[in-house]
Design a protein around this nucleic acid. Structure first.
Length: 873
RNA sequence: GCGAAAGUGGCGGAAUUGGUAGACGCGCAGGUCUCAGAAGCCUGUGGUCAUUAGACCAUGGGGGUUCGAUUCCCCCCUUUCGCACCA
């Protein structure tokens, strides 16, 4: 029988579903293992790149199952969000309908991939039964002062007609549609993630099993820096301006001050400036710029006309306004030290402001200030303070500590820790999201919706007309309500929540997904959480993972969970790319292809052009291999094996149609081999003459046959070596080499079968071991073969094989002989090798003698069991 | 600019603690089967020289440590990713 992947895969997918093999009783005892793939946004198009993510998770799931763990592997849907709403506007279909249809499609795709999820715990964030707890969580955060309404300059995407979180602005553009983001002053809802900045930063140190890269990205994003706040007085106005610096040791070099144009003291400072009108005009210009434009404009500033007193040199330093100082960070004001800060230096050059050197390289020469072309910075012991009064001569770290002491003694400032991280803006002026459960009453102000009135449901009868703002705001029945306090007329909040709120706690909901009485069952949550293995794309390194870590801590502080970190281990799989892109007509343009426009070749597509092209449109254009055709042609097992074999899973991988074929050939060989071994088992009468096959090397050597290996022993040994290697590689996520190891074993069994001098029982044992090891990668074919070999029950529920170290040991060992580090011969000796035997064998080796005869032996290096290096002169 | 990771055949990629570089697969070449093709199977496949045996060179470039370096150290080059006026 040929390998009929289609029949086999359908058969087993149904069998697993009918037996509900992946359903977990969360209350049952056992060695728990909670693994989770980041739940997808149901856009409807799952391609092989997504497949890699879920296949990887499924392979791990099956491996842990076979290892005897009670493994929980649930799945849900991150079902709120913009694309659904945009689709609604475009096609006139309700976002909910669109989303539900996509969920059904994607669910089918998961089944076709042979992925086992516990569907009894399925959840969708757009379901009122889910988002009511989103609202509940918001109310709890509000009670604790962690949700607040505030007016702030926010990022506004003119195309999506909504505000964005800082995390969603990439290079000054909207991360969804790439439109340049503009600043607007709006009143919005924020979550106070900055209260947790320290804990989020320090918590990273406890995450041993997270990729360093992700931790670093989060650390940079949180941007913790230690420094000092220092007050500078403005004598002419009798006021004080507070600055933040990380380098208080350079204060003797602070020759001017710069304030952000938005700084609240600007109006007073320029009140009597003759050029006031011009300065105000300039400020307005800067404020209207997007962040991107502001940066591209270069360093610009205006002199306020006022000076401040440097508290250490007592000099009057001019106060400037500068477009490079940001109101959102620190105090919106800096002391400028042009000698030791690149930005201050550029500004000083531009406006001819004095530059003073106050740090020198340790042991370096006195610099000539007129030679100075560039600011230089010394952050560690390599620098020493100079021209700095009491701290002169101190190395930088000591100088910083000392100057802060003096600042605090003189009460002109204090040590300060500041963060780059800003509060999480969660309001979105869009329909398809969780309504923020707040009510505005003319009498009582902002009033939270009482818990018992949850959920505040999204009305479904909403027209989608296009870009005229949030449709919810026009829905009279939704907007008009009564105040829970005074029972008078009131209006509902019409903004919805950022969908990252939905995904910040979903992992905890799975363990009691159907509980309608509470957000989750704390007892169950504490049994199953944190997630033991979390799997998802690197694109969530900051956004989702930071928000989830933050919300987890708030839940911890509320006493709802017993852990501060939600994900113990994190794995980020790489993307699958296919170089090229699909044109509007659906033709594939690959690297080096000629593009035809008006019947003329226009350009060859280079990688750079391609990336520019594709990133302009959509990232998903890079990933357009649809799995359906692939599964029809080769089967899901082939896709699974290929996807994990192609490259190390954390790396980006380039799709190759030929490579898929190779994976299919491998499975075909495994299939054919199985049939042959079965046939052999049926035809062999009685126990085969295994004794002949398992002669040891020593026996054969004794018979004068030379040291060859007993063929059956070789197969057994290879099998156990493979068990050992594959197990180790699974634990390290080295799926590509795990599969190559299985190919080696398969080749070895194939050779043994062809040679005909291996005991069929040995072949059967090795082969069924191969099936078990291969099962996580190719579940359907192995399940079928497992049954064909007469085994009861699913291979999935059988146990993972254990390697017997005694059976892995080679009977003879090859010792390599080097002369002056170069390979000059080799000898085989019985294992374990004895030094005398090895050396005797070397003496007897003619080839080696040839290289050392007549030369003086300087040294002999013996690496036990490996090699001998003879150094001659 | 700052930070991080990585450079190995035609390609994807292997190589416990420094110990036979190139496992496994793709591709390619030759063979076998066939009327023919596809698929399969077998053999070969880093480079140079050599009929062969074999020798030499080779893990981005240069230096160093070592009996021995893809692996450790220093300098340089390139690529990718992240952050980007955060004081």
């Amino acid at each position: 029988m040929p390998y009929e992947h289609k029949l086999i895969e359908e058969k087993w997918q149904n069998a697993w579903a009918d037996a509900k093999v992946a359903e977990v009783d969360v209350a049952a005892a056992g060695d728990k293992f909670y693994m989770l793939n980041m739940f997808p946004y149901p856009s409807g198009d799952l391609h092989v790149g997504h497949g890699r993510n879920y296949i990887l998770g499924d392979a791990l799931y099956r491996y842990f199952r076979m290892q005897g763990k009670v493994a929980l592997n649930p799945m849900g849907w991150d079902a709120f969000g913009l694309p659904a709403e945009n689709a609604a506007i475009k096609n006139g279909i309700h976002p909910g309908q669109w989303t539900r249809a996509n969920i059904e499609r994607e669910k089918k795709q998961f089944l076709r991939w042979g992925i086992l999820y516990d569907w009894s715990k399925e959840l969708a964030s757009c379901d009122p039964a889910y988002y009511r707890w989103n609202q509940w969580l918001f109310l709890k955060l509000y009670e604790r002062g962690l949700a607040y309404r505030g007016k702030a300059p926010v990022n506004w995407c003119p195309s999506d007609q909504t505000v964005l979180a800082n995390e969603q602005v990439i290079d000054g553009r909207c991360d969804r549609c790439s439109t340049i983001v503009v600043q607007r002053d709006l009143e919005q809802w924020f979550l106070k993630i900055t209260d947790y900045a320290d804990r989020l930063d320090f918590g990273l140190d406890t995450l041993e099993h997270w990729p360093e890269k992700v931790k670093l990205m989060q650390r940079n994003w949180i941007g913790r820096s230690v420094g000092a706040d220092v007050e500078f007085t403005v004598p002419s106005l009798g006021k004080v301006i507070r600055i933040f610096t990380t380098r208080p040791d350079t204060i003797y070099g602070a020759t001017f001050m710069v304030l952000a144009p938005e700084h609240p003291d600007v109006a007073t400072l320029i009140a009597d400036n003759p050029d006031r009108a011009e300065i105000e005009q300039w400020i307005t210009g800067v404020r209207n710029q997007s962040n991107l434009e502001r940066q591209e404009a270069g360093k610009e500033g205006r002199f306020t006309g006022k000076t401040a007193t440097n508290p250490f040199t007592n000099e009057q330093v001019p106060i400037w306004l500068g477009n490079f100082v940001l109101m959102q960070y620190g105090t919106g004001a800096i002391m400028a030290v042009p000698g030791h800060d690149q930005r201050d230096f550029e500004f000083a050059k531009q406006y001819n402001l004095p530059i003073r050197i106050v740090v020198m390289p340790a042991g370096g020469d006195e610099p000539k200030s007129d030679d100075l072309v560039e600011a230089f910075t010394f952050k560690d012991e390599s620098g020493v303070s100079v021209n700095s009064g009491p701290i002169s001569g101190l190395p930088v770290p000591k100088a910083i500590d000392r100057i802060i002491e003096i600042i605090e003694e003189r009460s002109i400032g204090k040590k300060m820790v500041r963060y780059r991280l800003r509060d999480w803006l969660i309001s979105r002026q869009r329909y398809w999201g969780t309504p923020i459960p707040m009510i505005y009453c003319d009498r009582d102000g902002i009033v939270p919706v009482p818990e018992e009135q949850l959920p505040v449901e999204l009305p479904l009868d909403v027209p989608f007309t296009g870009r005229e703002g949030n449709p919810l705001a026009k829905h009279e029945r939704f907007v008009n309500t009564t105040c829970p306090l005074c029972k008078g007329p009131a209006r509902r909040e019409t903004d919805t929540m950022d969908t990252f709120v939905d995904s910040s706690w979903y992992y905890a909901r799975f363990v009691s997904a159907n509980d309608s009485t509470k957000i989750f069952d704390s007892e169950l949550v504490n049994r199953w959480l944190p997630v033991d293995q979390y799997i998802g794309g690197i694109e969530h390194a900051i956004l989702h993972l930071l928000y989830a870590r933050f919300i987890c801590r708030t839940l911890y502080d509320m006493g709802l969970v017993g852990h501060e970190e939600p994900f113990t281990r994190l794995f980020n799989q790489g993307m699958i790319t296919k170089e090229g892109y699909r044109t509007a007509e659906g033709t594939w343009v690959g690297l080096g292809d000629v593009e035809w426009v008006d019947e003329k070749p226009v350009h060859r597509v280079t990688r750079k052009a391609l990336i520019a092209e594709t990133s302009k449109m959509s990232k998903s254009r890079l990933n357009v291999v649809p799995p359906d055709e692939l599964i029809d042609k080769y089967g899901a097992d082939t896709e699974r094996v290929y996807t994990l074999f192609i490259a190390p899973p954390e790396k980006e991988a380039e799709w190759s149609d030929d490579g898929v074929n190779g994976a299919h050939r491998f499975l075909n060989r495994v299939w054919n081999m199985g049939e042959q071994i079965l046939a052999l088992l049926y035809t062999s009468v009685g126990p085969p003459p295994s004794a002949a096959g398992v002669n040891t090397a020593r026996d054969q050597a004794a018979e004068g046959g030379g040291p060859t290996l007993g063929a059956s022993h070789a197969v057994i040994r290879k099998t156990h070596q493979t068990i050992d290697a594959v197990t180790r590689r699974f634990d390290r996520f080295e799926f590509n080499t795990a599969i190559s190891g299985l190919m080696e074993l398969s080749n070895a069994i194939g050779d043994a079968l062809a040679s005909g001098d291996v005991d069929p029982i040995v072949l059967r044992e090795s082969y069924t071991t191969l099936l078990k090891l291969l099962h996580p990668f190719a579940p359907h074919i192995t399940e079928e073969l497992w049954a064909m070999f007469g085994n009861e029950g699913f291979i999935l529920t059988s146990s993972w094989p254990k390697a017997d170290p005694a059976l892995m040991v080679e009977e003879v060992v090859t010792i390599v002989i080097q002369v002056n580090g170069k390979l000059r011969g080799q000898v085989e000796v019985p294992n374990p090798p004895e030094k005398d035997v090895v050396l005797a064998a070397i003496r007897a080796n003619a080839k080696v003698q040839q290289w050392i005869s007549g030369k003086e032996i300087v040294k002999e290096v013996y690496v036990p069991g490996k090699l001998v290096n003879i150094v001659v002169k």
